[in-house]
Amino acid sequence: MTFKLIINGKTLKGETTTEAVDAATAEKVFKQYANDNGLDGEWTYDDATKTFTITE
């Protein structure tokens, strides 16, 4: 399955995708991506669209 991450950061904005077997796996990938890029914010997830959002 394809999951999307929408980034609404103070300095970084955009989106990225990952292929994962489930939402929990995708969340780990996206949280590592956010950590690697210095993002810290509030996370939301929409199961209907398989989309995570981080807002700083």
Results as ranks from 00 to 15, higher is better:
Met1Val: 14
Met1Trp: 14
Met1Phe: 12
Met1Ser: 13
Met1Pro: 15
Met1Asp: 13
Thr2Ile: 13
Thr2Met: 14
Thr2Leu: 12
Phe3Pro: 01
Phe3Arg: 01
Phe3Asp: 01
Phe3Ser: 01
Phe3Trp: 06
Phe3Tyr: 11
Phe3Ala: 01
Lys4Pro: 01
Lys4Ser: 07
Leu5Val: 03
Leu5His: 00
Ile6Thr: 05
Ile7Trp: 15
Ile7Val: 09
Ile7Asn: 02
Ile7Tyr: 13
Ile7Ala: 04
Ile7Asp: 01
Asn8Thr: 08
Asn8Ile: 15
Gly9Thr: 15
Gly9Trp: 07
Gly9Lys: 07
Lys10Val: 13
Lys10Leu: 11
Thr11Asp: 13
Thr11Lys: 14
Thr11Ala: 09
Thr11Asn: 12
Thr11Pro: 04
Leu12Trp: 12
Leu12Ile: 14
Leu12Tyr: 13
Lys13Ser: 10
Lys13Cys: 10
Lys13Glu: 05
Gly14Ile: 15
Glu15Thr: 13
Glu15Met: 13
Thr16Tyr: 15
Thr16Asp: 03
Thr16Val: 14
Thr16Phe: 13
Thr16Gln: 14
Thr17Ala: 08
Thr17Asn: 06
Thr17Met: 10
Thr18Tyr: 11
Thr18Arg: 05
Glu19Gln: 13
Glu19Tyr: 14
Glu19Lys: 10
Glu19Ala: 08
Glu19Ile: 15
Ala20Trp: 02
Ala20Ser: 09
Ala20Glu: 04
Ala20Asp: 02
Val21His: 15
Val21Glu: 10
Val21Ala: 12
Val21Pro: 14
Asp22Lys: 03
Asp22Glu: 04
Asp22Tyr: 03
Asp22Gly: 04
Asp22Asn: 09
Ala23Lys: 14
Ala23Cys: 08
Ala23Asn: 05
Ala24Phe: 15
Ala24Lys: 11
Ala24Val: 11
Ala24His: 09
Ala24Asn: 08
Thr25Tyr: 09
Thr25Ala: 14
Ala26Lys: 00
Ala26His: 00
Ala26Tyr: 00
Ala26Glu: 00
Glu27Val: 05
Glu27Gly: 06
Lys28Ile: 10
Lys28His: 07
Lys28Phe: 10
Val29Lys: 11
Phe30Glu: 00
Phe30Leu: 04
Phe30Ser: 00
Phe30Ile: 01
Phe30Thr: 00
Phe30Arg: 00
Lys31Ser: 04
Lys31Cys: 05
Gln32Asn: 10
Gln32Gly: 07
Gln32Lys: 15
Tyr33Cys: 04
Ala34Lys: 02
Ala34Tyr: 03
Asn35Val: 15
Asp36His: 06
Asp36Thr: 09
Asp36Phe: 07
Asn37Leu: 15
Gly38Thr: 04
Gly38Cys: 09
Gly38Ile: 04
Gly38Met: 09
Gly38Leu: 08
Leu39Asp: 01
Leu39Cys: 04
Leu39Trp: 13
Asp40Thr: 15
Asp40Lys: 14
Asp40Pro: 04
Asp40Phe: 13
Gly41Thr: 02
Gly41Arg: 01
Gly41His: 02
Gly41Met: 03
Glu42Ser: 09
Glu42Pro: 04
Glu42Gln: 09
Trp43Ala: 01
Trp43Ser: 01
Trp43Lys: 00
Trp43Val: 03
Thr44Met: 08
Tyr45Asn: 01
Tyr45Met: 02
Tyr45Ser: 01
Tyr45Thr: 01
Tyr45Ile: 02
Asp46Pro: 00
Asp46Trp: 04
Asp47Gln: 08
Asp47Lys: 09
Ala48Met: 13
Thr49Gly: 04
Thr49Tyr: 05
Thr49Glu: 06
Thr49Phe: 05
Thr49Pro: 02
Thr49Ser: 13
Lys50Met: 12
Thr51Glu: 05
Phe52Lys: 00
Phe52Ser: 00
Thr53Asn: 04
Thr53Gln: 06
Thr53Phe: 12
Thr53Tyr: 10
Ile54Pro: 00
Ile54Gly: 00
Ile54Cys: 05
Ile54Tyr: 03
Thr55Gln: 06
Thr55Val: 06
Thr55Pro: 01
Thr55Tyr: 08
Thr55Cys: 05
Thr55Glu: 07
Glu56Asp: 08
Glu56Val: 15
Glu56Pro: 11
